Simulated assay, not measured.
Amino acid sequence: MRGHSLHVTPTKIPGLVSISPVHHGDHRGYFCEVFKDGWFRENVADVTFVQDNESLSADVGTMRGLHFQLDPFAQGKLVRCIKGALFDVAVDIRHGSPTFGQWVGVELSAENGQQLWVPPGMAHGFMTLKPDTMIAYKVTAPYSAENDRGLRWNDPAIGISWPQSVDCILSDKDKKQPMLADMPAYFHCHAREAN
């Protein structure tokens, strides 16, 4: 297996990237590398992942998010879908960033194998597109209930174009998250980080 086994595609938000693995296959199936620590540190972000998480959403239209954690437990997340399909979204909530309040959405599925790297300072969420969808993600900090925060999934000032606009299944917690304009300035972006 020669050449690069993972490809990075930048998005309009600095630091937020899509990662695509190369599948090596034949009539039996395929093999692919989905994560390499050294490669990730060199090509995406020099971070240490401390935990792997997985969740199952039974119904189409299940919405989880938009979530983030405050320092010192701010999380970077490397997200992929291992069963089904989902629309994965990150919103830049770093005050001073040229892309503050902007969002990026990527369809992640078991078929396409794509991943999304969501650095700290972003609110993250997803909506399922198929039944029994499973998401798996690495995080750079453990869960902290004290530092757990959220942003309203349908804030009109952000204007995320979710694939489903009706019959969205939300937790009570996510129905009550604040709008971006009502949130304190939890994260700040310095000029060097914006490039």
Rank of each mutant, 00 (worst) to 15 (best):
R2Q: 15
G3I: 00
H4P: 13
H4Y: 12
L6A: 06
H7E: 12
H7K: 14
T9F: 12
T11K: 01
T11L: 06
I13Q: 02
P14S: 07
S18W: 12
S18T: 14
I19F: 00
I19V: 11
S20P: 12
P21N: 02
P21K: 05
V22K: 14
G25A: 05
G25Q: 08
D26N: 14
D26S: 06
G29A: 07
Y30N: 13
F31Q: 04
C32Q: 15
F35C: 04
K36H: 03
K36Q: 11
R41Y: 01
R41L: 06
N43R: 00
V44T: 04
A45Q: 07
A45G: 00
V47A: 01
V47N: 02
F49E: 02
F49H: 05
F49V: 06
V50K: 08
E54M: 15
E54V: 15
A58R: 15
A58V: 13
D59M: 13
M63N: 12
M63R: 11
F68G: 06
Q69F: 05
L70G: 08
D71Y: 14
D71A: 15
P72L: 10
F73M: 11
Q75K: 05
G76T: 00
G76F: 00
G76Y: 05
G76P: 00
K77S: 07
V79H: 09
V79A: 04
I82T: 12
G84E: 01
G84F: 03
G84Q: 08
D88P: 11
V89S: 07
V89N: 01
I93T: 09
I93L: 01
I93W: 02
I93E: 03
G96D: 10
S97M: 08
F100Q: 01
G101E: 09
Q102S: 05
W103Q: 11
W103T: 05
E107D: 11
E111G: 09
Q114K: 14
L116D: 04
A123M: 06
H124E: 06
F126S: 03
D132N: 15
I135E: 07
A136T: 14
K138E: 09
V139I: 04
A141Y: 03
Y143K: 08
E146D: 14
N147R: 13
D148S: 11
R149Y: 08
L151K: 02
W153T: 03
N154S: 10
N154G: 04
N154Q: 02
P156V: 09
P156Y: 10
P156C: 08
I158M: 06
I158Y: 09
P163V: 10
Q164H: 14
D167F: 13
I169K: 04
D172P: 11
K176F: 13
K176W: 08
Q177F: 14
P178D: 09
M179A: 12
M179V: 11
A181E: 12
M183Y: 04
P184K: 10
P184M: 12
A185K: 14
Y186E: 11
F187M: 08
H188I: 14
C189D: 03
C189I: 03
H190W: 13
N195M: 14
